[in-house]
């Protein structure tokens, strides 16, 4: 999902490419920038037990980064988005177009030009 190896065309918005929890977390990060885990769970209203594994996946896949911070003796993760929303959109688009060209070759390219002509 995070690795874009599975795309659900019928889903809405970001959930075409990400799981619902991943999409919610990414939108929160894009909207508010750096965030601690507790802020993330508050903003997204998703319990910690559900976001923890997803956050690990997002970091591993390179969509989010985090640093360990020690505030008043308390250890905290601070998350930040690696790409802006636009950068993520163009990366996803490139990956999808690549796979279309890989599958259909010249026919895909022909359709791209038709598509941009329509616009």
């Amino acid at each position: 999902m995070v690795k874009l190896d599975q795309i659900n065309i019928s889903n809405k918005g970001l959930t075409k490419f990400f799981s619902p929890i991943e999409a919610t977390i990414l939108r929160a990060l894009w909207a508010d920038g750096d965030m601690m885990t507790s802020e993330l769970t508050e903003k997204t209203k998703i319990p910690l037990t559900s976001v923890a594994g997803t956050l690990d996946r997002l970091v591993k896949a390179g969509y989010a980064s985090r640093t360990v911070d020690n505030v008043n003796g308390r250890v905290r993760y601070v998350y930040s988005p690696v790409y802006s929303e636009d950068e993520a959109a163009s990366e996803i688009t490139t990956r999808v177009l690549d796979s279309l060209v890989d599958a259909f070759g010249p026919l895909a390219v022909e359709n791209f030009s038709k598509y941009s002509g329509k616009k």
């Binding site: 885990t37 910690l48 976001v51 923890a52 594994g53 690990d56 308390r74 250890v75 993760y77």
Partner: peptide, 23 residues
């Protein structure tokens, strides 16, 4: 480095995830 709260022992070491310290 993991947000999933976990702790375990092996050999003569105890491992805790950052997620556990956080939670």
């Amino acid at each position: 480095d993991s947000a999933v709260p976990k702790a375990f022992a092996a050999g003569r070491s105890i491992f805790v995830s950052v997620g556990l310290l956080e939670a």
